[in-house]
Design a protein around this nucleic acid. Sequence first.
RNA 1: CGGGGUGUGGCGCAGUUGGCUAGCGCAUCUGCUUUGGGAGCAGAGGGUCGAAGGUUCGAGUCCUUUUACCCCGACCA
Length: 492
Amino acid sequence: MAKAVTKRSENYSQWYNDLALKADLAEQSAVRGCMVIKPYGYAIWEKMQHLLDGMFKQTGVQNAYFPLFIPKSFFSREAEHVAGFAKECAVVTHHRLMNDPEGKGVVVDPDARLEEELIVRPTSETIIWSTYKNWITSWRDLPILCNQWCNVVRWEMRTRLFLRTAEFLWQEGHTAHATAEEARARAEQMVGIYADFARNVMALPVIMGHKSPNERFAGALDTLTIEAMMQDGKALQAGTSHFLGQNFAKSFDVQFTNKEGKQEYVWATSWGVSTRLMGALIMAHGDDNGLVLPPRLAPIQVVMVPIYKSEDERNEVLAKMKEISADLDRLAVSWKIDDRDTLRPGFKFAEWELKGVPVRLAMGARDLESGTVEVARRDTLTKETMPLEHLADHIPALLDSIQQNIYDKALAFRESRVEKCDSWEEFKEKIQTGRFLLCHWDGTPETEQAIKDETKATIRCIPVDSYVCEEEGRDIYSGKPSHRRVVFAISY
RNA sequence: CGGGGUGUGGCGCAGUUGGCUAGCGCAUCUGCUUUGGGAGCAGAGGGUCGAAGGUUCGAGUCCUUUUACCCCGACCA
């Protein structure tokens, strides 16, 4: 096991990469742009899946599964959608291999060319809407509320663990509604769930808002987003929810008979979060000692490290730890006793810190004598010795306090880097220092593009629940009139 | 696709104007001592130096070709 990760302050991206590797979350695969998610990383992802899935189901959403392959013709029905994804699609052209006639291994059989190429889904709107067409005839069939957990492929030029990989895991929800109002409400409801999940489970303060037309999903009329600030002050889009209007219904001819007996196109939404959330977790909370997991997401909430000199001592400590673990089971706290005999305590301390386990209990001869245990918390790296008797009752409160503290810390960090800005000169300078700048914008794509070209900054969102600032002013760049401030930042 | 960089045991690297048996740290294995913050000592194993061709008495080192990966742009959750 290597020593500590690269210092966060020295090289942020290297720190990030180091952390993902050394905390045993994931590694680069030999396959171009692809990632292997290791068991520990996957355990965290599974927990995210489980919690989100529960939240979806409470709103009536059901899980389903649609094919990985999309016939090329489906894909090209919605013009804007194609334009948005065409440049990053993997395409299946053949269905058979053969031995190389010249004996150089295996080659693609030229006779096995597909009549119609299949696109490996970069997102499933098209295949799903071609299916929904068969499901929907009457207003009684609506709404349809489906979600799928799956992988998608986007052939990115440059990739980074979790943040941007050629293949990634996500959930995508696709709903069909009888009215525009209902669809809009659903899109808002789902982004609300994402915000709730980010804030209360991931301890990630996010800004909820609308995307500007430039940043909108290809084919959407409105895109809602949650935007988080990473510890380098850059923005990360952590989840999106789209109001698709009738675009896909029209492209795939999905109509229903309404209560008045008239044919109408259905209204659609889609929404998703991906394994990118894992990247957000690392970048928002991690420190120089490694990952910091919010207790509600930690696969292991409490790790116990025995300290001993003899076999007898070892058995005695482990027996006490078994007792503690029984209490923790009753309290639904997940735990692990690290009884590996080949590693020394100091090593284990460092390793579990690297992995971000919220609470560590250490117990040795000293504690056996005095009936105590050492309790260390990951978020503050502080330790205290406390009597064994009331330990179990103390743990849930401690986990809550860690959860809250991680959120508060991230929020305070963001607050310290969000500011209003009304001068273009100041903007150009400040935006490069990792800040969210609240500025006036004239509402035109041209202005946003010009700002992006000059500074790389984009409108992260037009906020709806924090930093809302409806006031008259002048565009930071063009000087034209504006009615509200929007959030500008450089993003991942 | 444009600009820059790197390929040497599992990982990270050194290798001088071409020279003798290719080296170091980490990791691995064995033994003993250790164990309350990433252990110490002793020993051992592991390499066709990215690939192909060339120059030379002699190439990790020079030349040509090629390939892979990384970083900075364009594209993006």
